[in-house]
Design a protein around this nucleic acid. Structure first.
Lengths: 191, 191
DNA sequence: TACATTTGCCTAAGGTATATAGGCAAATCA
DNA sequence: TGATTTGCCTATATACCTTAGGCAAATGTA
């Protein structure tokens, strides 16, 4: 019998594409085996199990997203950098909804530590260097930034902003304006 | 044979509790049938299918969450109201992670329209009445508020803020401070 | 080249979950 | 009391995950 030439990498890449087409949690070993015209059991030579596949897709997405964010950030500072980072996340989620969902997949701590997660945190901090925030405010701001970016993208992709005016692009621009204003004038803690 | 006394409501309630214990997407008809010591097929007298169960849990969670938020909001205005609403969401997510996840379950448009979703939107707008925002800024602000609340809760429950200082409670307080400051001084759109 | 080893895909089989069809007994109604 | 409806059952089909064991293709070695 001829061999199909499977590798973990090809399977994970195909899984990522499948995720974008049908949703991350519709990605199954069975579907993947069908695509490669191979029996399901054959995949176990390349992947430990179904979780291993999902982890691989998550790591791929985290790395791709970090690469895009780093590209977008290069040479920018201040509000330009803020918008670039936010747009990198939002655009990625819109172009690759399945991969974006994969990036939220809960990784075990060791895997997470080896992932591109750290680069994401570093980039948020890089954006904040354009503003004047000392610790611990910088950490608070990193968390707020992440919350707005992730929250907006999640609600938008869930269709939360779709059937009403003003359109979502406008609200997004204003959210970036608002974050910029906030970071330039970060409030002291309330008594 | 004695009857088990199942109803859709009992199944959905038990499903919600199961969701909090093991996670929303581990809620299965099989697990539920085991709990009630009944065969899986018997559940189909009360629920159309597995999606029907999940929809029921989602509607339950949306309604509970809206009730809590309404309670928290009663008699408050301005920053008090803002914090009350935010805390209602965050506390609910921490006490009932499975139900909170269920509230994110994608509903078909007709079901969504009949859900407590509208009450949630109304409550955000009620909070904003304590600030001075005319349309369309009010809508932009509603969306930002939702993004921060949902985004923070999602990242926190994913463990994003857990293994580092400052602690998450502090960042949350500062996020509420920041939102309040922002709403009191909402920036004009950028050229 | 010949043979041994490793690797890749296979069949077989067992487990879990969803879903439908059809039956029988309990509950309800006339 | 008898007729009807309702609730739970068994049986069956499908889909997915996973492990075990086998054989042939690919690779390494003499």
């Amino acid at each position: 019998m001829a061999r199909a030439g499977l590798t973990a990498e090809r399977l994970i890449t195909a899984g990522a594409e499948l995720a974008d087409q049908v949703g991350f949690d519709q990605v199954t070993l069975s579907a993947l085996a069908r695509q490669f015209d191979v029996k399901v059991a054959s995949l176990y030579s390349h992947l430990k199990n179904s979780q291993d596949l999902k982890t691989g897709i998550a790591l791929l997405a985290l790395a791709e997203l970090a690469d895009r964010a780093a590209d977008a950030l290069a040479g920018r500072a201040g509000k330009d950098a803020l918008a670039a980072l936010g747009n990198a996340y939002r655009d990625y989620a819109r172009e690759h909804p399945g991969r974006y969902a994969a990036a939220q997949f809960r990784l075990d701590p060791r895997t997470a530590a080896a992932s591109a997660g750290g680069r994401h945190a570093q980039m948020s901090r890089a954006v904040l260097r354009g503003y004047d925030l000392a610790e611990p405010d910088q950490t608070h701001a990193v968390r707020l930034l992440g919350s707005v970016f992730h929250g907006y993208v999640a609600l938008e992709s869930a269709g939360g902003f779709s059937h009403s005016s003003p359109d979502s692009q406008e609200s997004w621009s204003r959210a970036l304006d608002a974050l910029d204003a906030l970071l330039r004038n970060w409030p002291a803690p309330t008594g």
